[in-house]
């Protein structure tokens, strides 16, 4: 779906990541000072913090690139049709 017809699918991807990233980040902040989940292996790497930040950045990037009204990006491929004379008949 193109922007001129409504929100791009990548805009929704951006919304989802921009919501999930901060939730993961906030949920893992208490673990920075004290161990919250001793059963989690490699807890000391604080993967939740890094992953939350990464998802938030990706979400923001998708929202910026696919905000309604912006130019199409590489994911909204320009027309390179190799069958210009398509017929409209259906079976």
């Amino acid at each position: 779906m193109h922007e001129e017809e409504g929100f791009s699918i990548w805009f929704f991807v951006g919304i989802m990541l921009a919501i999930y990233g901060p939730i993961v980040l906030i949920a893992n902040i208490p673990g920075l000072s004290t161990s919250q989940n001793p059963h989690v292996v490699l807890e000391q790497l604080h993967a939740g913090i890094w992953w939350g930040i990464l998802l938030t950045i990706l979400g923001a990037l998708f929202l910026y690139l696919h905000w309604p009204g912006k130019e199409t990006s590489v994911l909204d491929e320009k027309d390179n049709n190799i069958l210009p004379g398509e017929t409209e008949e259906e079976n």
């Binding site: 999930y20 939730i23 993961v24 980040l25 906030i26 949920a27 893992n28 673990g31 919250q36 989940n37 059963h39 989690v40 292996v41 490699l42 807890e43 993967a47 939740g48 992953w51 939350g52």
Partner: peptide
């Protein structure tokens, strides 16, 4: 997942 993922990540 339970072995490596903490809060939020497990939900994902």
């Amino acid at each position: 997942m339970a072995r490596y993922l903490g809060p939020g990540l497990l939900g994902l």
